Amino acid sequence: MSATHPAVVTVGVGQPLEIHQVPTIAPEANEVRIRVEWTVSTPLDLHQADGGLLVNPPHILGSSVAGTVLEVGPDTTRLRPGDRVFGYTFRQKKERAHQLYVTTPETMLGKLSATGGFDIRQAVVTCNNFVSAWHTLTHDFGFEFPWPKPSGFVPRELNDWILIWGGGTSVGQYCLQLLKWYGYKKVLVTASKHHHEKLRRYGARQCFDYREGGTAQRILEAVQSVITGDTPVVPFILDCVGSQQKSLLPIAVIAQSRAIVAVMLPVIVRDAAVDVTPEYLMDVEKAVTWQDGVKAVGVRTHFYQKNEFLAQNLQSVVMPEALAFGTIEPNEYLEVGGANLLERATNALSKLRSKEVSGARLIWRVAEPET
């Protein structure tokens, strides 16, 4: 085992990415060390690199890994050297994805052989946003998702409307598929029109093209905005976009007293662009003016492990089985090229910044192919 290995780091707000040599950590207890072959560049990487969001540079980027187990700790029970794995790893430097080797507990990894034939690139696009979708729907909305799903399961919220703003996003697609699996039928989405056919297949009852304008009013009309009693017309609203102007303002028109609005953080006040420093808010309640009684919360996926069952099973069992059972299908992806590790990471970040890809994840190779 080499003492160090290369990692992609952000060294300052808006500064070019760099390659740093970082310590290679041997696994302890139930940890494994994997050789990272594929990773995903996400909006969070852009927020951290261009906006310095919640990081203290130099900071290793990335949270989705797929690769091969090289070493295992003495307390591992499930994974062995040679296993092909994928997972959402984020907590410490040794776990972050944009580096050659990652050391992490085996509970944070799914086994590729348990996914029913999906390849490693399809697996890596599942990790972080599958976890985000599951955590949001169960923690922030309080939905029950028993696993395995019992025969004849009927959700308590069967008759409640659910709105997903940004249904074409990765999180939106996984949320839709999970809701369909568990029997929810009254799900509305906003998305660009070219996503509508897929989103209907994933379970959307009605799709709204946010580019047409007047979206909030059209949604209220669709669900009969005259209400009785204390029940909000749309009790559950998920904002997968997190833009103060583009999503939160229209959602604030729709959300009535006692509705829960869950927002993927951060709230974007000014979006990243070439030569533009982004601006963010982390307090959802203060981002816009909400109607009295609306519960607006920021989604914090990193805390999903506070649930002991999910900590032990969400990535190691549920995630690969959800792929194998057909509960979800992976997002589409675009493979980003480059002559070396730094160039691939930089190219992926540039594509995020320019917003030239919609509805697909940006994946790139970390380790060079073995010859």
Rank of each mutant, 00 (worst) to 15 (best):
residue 330 P to D: 03
residue 224 Q to L: 11
residue 119 D to A: 00
residue 245 Q to A: 13
residue 241 V to Y: 05
residue 100 L to V: 06
residue 90 F to Y: 15
residue 240 C to S: 13
residue 208 F to W: 06
residue 165 W to P: 07
residue 265 L to G: 04
residue 114 A to Y: 08
residue 55 V to Q: 14
residue 63 S to T: 08
residue 133 A to R: 04
residue 261 V to C: 07
residue 279 E to P: 12
residue 314 L to S: 01
residue 357 V to W: 05
residue 45 D to F: 00
residue 12 G to F: 07
residue 318 V to I: 15
residue 203 G to P: 01
residue 146 P to A: 07
residue 95 E to P: 07
residue 342 L to K: 03
residue 206 Q to Y: 12
residue 335 E to G: 03
residue 169 T to A: 03
residue 284 V to E: 11
residue 295 K to A: 00
residue 115 T to F: 05
residue 208 F to Y: 09
residue 236 F to T: 07
residue 244 Q to K: 10
residue 301 T to A: 09
residue 316 S to K: 09
residue 92 Q to E: 11
residue 283 D to Y: 01
residue 232 P to C: 13
residue 276 V to M: 06
residue 36 V to C: 01
residue 191 A to P: 15
residue 291 Q to G: 04
residue 193 K to M: 00
residue 57 P to A: 00
residue 64 S to E: 11
residue 221 E to L: 13
residue 188 L to K: 02
residue 345 A to I: 12
residue 249 L to W: 06
residue 334 L to D: 14
residue 320 P to K: 12
residue 104 T to K: 04
residue 347 N to A: 09
residue 301 T to F: 14
residue 330 P to E: 03
residue 255 A to T: 09
residue 130 F to H: 11
residue 34 I to G: 14
residue 181 W to T: 01
residue 86 F to R: 02
residue 8 V to L: 03
residue 25 I to K: 07
residue 172 G to N: 01
residue 149 K to W: 05
residue 326 G to Y: 01
residue 265 L to V: 04
residue 154 V to Y: 04
residue 246 K to I: 09
residue 300 R to P: 14
residue 67 G to A: 04
residue 173 Q to T: 02
residue 269 V to W: 13
residue 20 H to S: 06
residue 356 E to H: 11
residue 4 T to A: 11
residue 289 T to M: 09
residue 308 E to V: 12
residue 247 S to Y: 04
residue 167 G to Q: 06
residue 237 I to G: 07
residue 145 F to Y: 07
residue 39 T to G: 02
residue 258 R to L: 15
residue 219 I to S: 08
